[in-house]
Amino acid sequence: MFSESPLEGAEITASGVGSTMREVETGRDSRNLLPSGASGLETIGAHAWFGKHHAIEDVSLRFPKSSVTGLIGPSGCGKSTFLRLLNRMHEFIPGTAFAGQVLLDGRDIYAPEVNATEIRLKVGMVFQKPNPFPSMSIADNVLAGLRLARIKTADKYMLLEDCLVRAGLWKEVKDRLKASAGSLSGGQQQRLCIARALAVKPEVLLMDEPCSALDPGSTLRVEETIVQLSEAMTIIIVTHNMQQAARVSDYCAFFLSEGGPGRVVEAGLTSTIFTNPVDPRTADYVQGRFG
């Protein structure tokens, strides 16, 4: 560890240079740019197709480390599709195609030598509908990733407690870890899914409308969890709830399709997007005039 520290310093400088170059490179289209900072994840000119249907066009976004980025926009504008590009789950659907680059710590995750399964360990995902594994207990659900990806851990119990504490569920379930995951409420199930995603120690967490199936109380708990988690990881969250985007995100990207493929209209600090957007369409959307 210690002997490698000079090298790490060198890497940081290198990636810093890289990001400046990128700013110059994409400067002509500043709308598609999130403010600088050490980027955990970055897309460059990302396109996605379902068969002949062009779903996403030329999305270049940088997601800074230790931040929450909200992806907002009306239904069908390609937010979820974009999210699934980031952990290589888009390709599960037959007939899909992709163009551009997705960089995780500066490395292209679509490079031919990259193992997509390993990428999914580093880029975790929480889905719209809570999907705990019904045949497993609460504890087994949290540790499911280890079994699925065949990862060995020295102290499973420590990891279990750590993940459940970070997901804000420990106090509620610590006395019934052996109970079935199906016995939990919807909000608890979603936090269980977050704990499950944390157990494989991802660097980035993708959340696809994680609160859309939850009641207001549970939504609040999940939002608190998101804010706490963002101290240590990059979080990208798709949401239809403007208040939620304003509450939890540091940055926002506004997607819009207008009949054609989905594009990013505007991206930047959440406060700017909500109070002083550049594009009138963004202003209309965040103020609830359409979508």
């Binding site: 952990n87 789950m89 599960f92 399964t117 390993e118 999914r120 360990l121 975790g124 995902m125 889905f127 509908k129 999907n131 594994f133 019904p134 499911a144 990733g145 699925l148 990806a149 899914c193 499950r196 995603a197 494989v200």
Partner: peptide, 13 residues
């Protein structure tokens, strides 16, 4: 349910 399979794949399975 496809969401269970998706969930498993998203965990690196």
């Amino acid at each position: 349910p496809p969401e269970l399979i998706d969930g498993a794949r998203a965990l690196g399975g």
